[in-house]
């Protein structure tokens, strides 16, 4: 299978490219990046061809593309790739506005191409085990969720609202909203949130607490922030606690680690040894294209998660709950 990559603006592009290189049936046929220095560098690293012209890149013979641009460019690249009949894996969040996301989904449908959204946390082995437990009825009825997704300030275009569409709340809400929707099979109908900027003196949010209510009455909390500093033992987390009528179970996508102590400013580090979620996401996408099946994480899943994150900003501004 021939796959191309569109932009390495998002750091996840590197692990996705590593994943492609490790799949025997996949060829990374080219990289489009209009940041020419970055594009040439990564093309050399992955021994492929660099394109700084999107049209020429999309004229290539390939089956699919992986888009890792700045958030606000997802729409442009998804639509162009769809019109060029390429299947698409798009980095999260799907877009920066609901309207853009809807248009992207529609264009992909019209051109009969797959649009999968990159929510790698779905491929965490602990998250999948918990999903199986829920589906097997081991937790009983779900009563509530508690979730977190905290990390470091990525800087760069992430803290430029025009390019990112939002700060920590947009960046770190969509993963766990997707997991909750996946576990429950229900939609969120109300969002209440406090969004603020505490940690980095930046003009974009770096902290947020969300309180959610699903259509069946399940309630949930989510802590989204860039509160982790570089000396903290790990980059951040992605956790969920599911409170059920039979039992309460916690899953932590980065729990599998050992502690490493060294002499220096960062004395303690958590060294992760769990499954490579990014690789499993890429493998799933490749299988999906190969088999011509519906993606495991659809554009609609990306849209639903985006709606919740954007509602959090609105709720915080209005100082009241927002109905979806």
């Amino acid at each position: 299978m021939k796959i191309g990559m569109m932009s390495f603006a998002h750091m996840h592009a590197y692990s996705y490219a590593d994943g492609l290189m490790n799949l025997p049936n996949v060829e990374l046929v080219g990289i489009f990046d209009d940041d020419s220095d970055r594009g040439k560098e990564v093309a050399e690293k992955y021994r492929t061809k660099h394109f700084n012209n999107q049209k020429s890149f999309l004229e290539m013979d390939m089956d699919a593309v992986i888009i890792c641009s700045e958030n606000f460019r997802h729409k442009e690249m998804v639509i162009n790739a769809a019109k060029a009949n390429k299947h698409i894996l798009c980095e999260k969040p799907i877009a920066t506005t609901v309207e853009d996301a809807e248009e992207m989904i529609n264009v992909c449908d019209e051109n009969n191409v797959i649009l999968q959204i990159a929510f790698p946390v779905r491929f965490s082995s602990s998250m999948r085990r918990l999903k199986n437990m829920i589906d097997n009825g081991e937790l009983g009825d779900i009563v509530a969720f508690r979730t977190t997704n905290r990390g470091q300030n990525p800087g760069g275009w992430f803290i430029d609202k025009e390019q990112s569409g939002g700060g920590a709340v947009l960046d770190h809400t969509v993963h766990m909203v997707d997991i909750m929707r996946w576990y429950l099979g229900k939609e969120i109908m109300e969002v209440h949130a406090i969004v603020d900027s505490y940690f980095h003196g930046i003009d974009i949010d770096d902290a947020g607490l969300l309180t959610l209510e699903f259509e069946n009455g399940v309630i949930a909390t989510h802590d989204a922030s860039w509160s982790r500093f570089k000396e903290y033992p790990t980059w951040g987390d992605a956790t969920i606690e599911v409170v059920g009528t039979k039992q309460t179970v916690t899953a932590d996508a980065f729990k599998e680690h050992f502690r490493m102590f060294t002499s220096g400013p960062k004395s303690l580090s958590h060294v992760f040894y769990g499954n490579d979620m990014d690789f499993d996401l890429i493998r799933d996408f490749v299988n999906c294209v190969e088999e011509g099946r519906k993606p495991s994480i659809t554009g609609s899943d990306g849209l639903k998660a985006l709606e919740v994150a954007l509602a959090a900003y609105k709720s915080s501004e209005m100082k009241s709950a927002v109905k979806l």
Partner: peptide
């Protein structure tokens, strides 16, 4: 926000 208080656990 709270769940149905007649169902255990109550959150």
């Amino acid at each position: 926000k709270h769940t149905n208080h007649t169902v255990a656990p109550y959150h």
